[in-house]
């Protein structure tokens, strides 16, 4: 079968912008994208540069963008990505390109280090042997443990595309693996850090990370678990956590006028910035005023659904459901 490859070519030493170079390849049936790239490199163009190693989706080296989305070249059947007989191959996004499909991974490793990705034991105890994890305990960290650090999630993360300081999905998934490990003694301190600037609350849940993840690590799910752990540890001193509290209070109408089965859309932003946060509240005024002038503002009084008491009963199970 003939297939066309539009491959991004770039050399940091020579080029200012990448260009797409077309290769036409006769590919054996059942080829992976990586096998095709090797055919090109070995038979057509030895200068084409990409990373690869294990060819079995375990080393994470060959992550690249196929038709604009991050994938492992070795785990992707060419037939699954061909559109009209062609596929576009580009380096991972959100990274500086060094050559062709090779990117500078340094910011990825640097981000990982920020969450201290190692187990911190209770130092007051003297352990006589290695500390085993129970099967139940392992289940809580099993998914995050499958991460192969391929950076597919980092590549397609929407927040990283506007803010390189964001810890990013792989790093946060790794943090979940330690926060949820019963042998680690630092959950509280870790959660304080993750709840701060560039942490879990900066994730916009675009779900690109979980969608592109080639393993079960699924960073968005892990980030959601970290947020739940933060809330359970009552780390509430930030807008993200207050926004969650706003929903917790609004849907069951905890205070008069805050909601009645449906949220009160006026209450949510006020509670999220903090009712005593003067500058935060002032910041809400322009948009509030704009919407008010146009008649776009939500109704002042919340909408009470008729069977509201049902919602209250369900919310009374809040603590029971967290167990």
């Amino acid at each position: 079968m003939k297939a066309r490859f539009l491959i991004s070519r770039f050399d940091l030493q020579l080029d200012t912008t990448p260009r797409l170079q077309e290769y036409s390849v006769d590919v054996p049936k059942g080829s992976t994208v990586l096998e095709c790239l090797n055919i090109i490199k070995w038979t057509q163009d030895g200068t084409l540069t990409f990373r690869m190693s294990c060819r079995s989706a375990i080393c994470g080296s060959c992550a690249m963008r196929l038709n604009g989305h991050a994938k492992l070249a070795c785990k992707t059947q060419l037939s699954d990505v061909l559109i009209d007989g062609a596929v576009t191959v580009e380096p991972l996004g959100n990274f500086k390109v060094i050559k062709d499909l090779v990117v500078d991974m340094e910011p990825f490793w640097a981000s990982l280090k920020r969450v201290k990705p190692w187990l911190k034991p209770d130092e007051s105890v003297e352990y006589e042997r290695e500390r085993l994890q129970s099967i139940e305990g392992y289940k809580k960290i099993e998914d995050a443990s499958t991460c192969i650090l391929c950076a597919s999630c980092y590549s397609d993360c929407n927040v990283l595309s506007v803010d390189e300081r964001f810890l990013g999905p792989a790093t946060l998934a790794k943090a979940q693996r330690f926060v949820y490990d019963s042998r680690d003694c630092d959950a509280e301190e870790r959660l304080e850090y993750l709840g701060g600037a560039n942490g879990v609350w900066d994730c916009t849940h675009c779900a690109e990370c979980s969608t592109r993840c080639p393993t079960d690590a699924k960073p968005l799910e892990r980030i959601t678990e970290l947020k739940a752990a933060s809330m359970a540890h009552r780390i509430h001193g930030n807008n993200g956590a207050r926004h969650v509290l706003a929903f917790r209070e609004s849907i069951p109408g905890k205070y008069p006028g805050t909601g009645g089965g449906m949220i009160n859309e006026n209450y949510i932003p006020l509670r999220s910035v903090g009712i005593f946060n003067i500058s935060g509240l002032l910041d809400l005024i322009p948009v509030g005023l704009r919407m008010f002038m146009r008649g776009k503002q939500p109704p002042m009084m919340p909408h009470y659904i008729k069977k509201f008491p049902e919602i209250r009963k369900m919310f009374s199970r809040f603590k029971e459901y967290l167990k």
């Binding site: 739940a228 926004h243 849907i251 089965g261 659904i305 919602i311 369900m314 199970r317 809040f318 459901y321």
Partner: peptide, 27 residues
């Protein structure tokens, strides 16, 4: 459906996933 509640918008689900699912199961 006059009695449907808020779906939780993914936010309740960050706080208490089971309660979020329960709200939707009710709807």
């Amino acid at each position: 459906m006059e009695d449907a509640s808020c779906c939780g918008a993914g936010v309740v689900q960050e706080d208490n996933p089971k309660l979020g699912d329960a709200l939707n199961a009710r709807t």
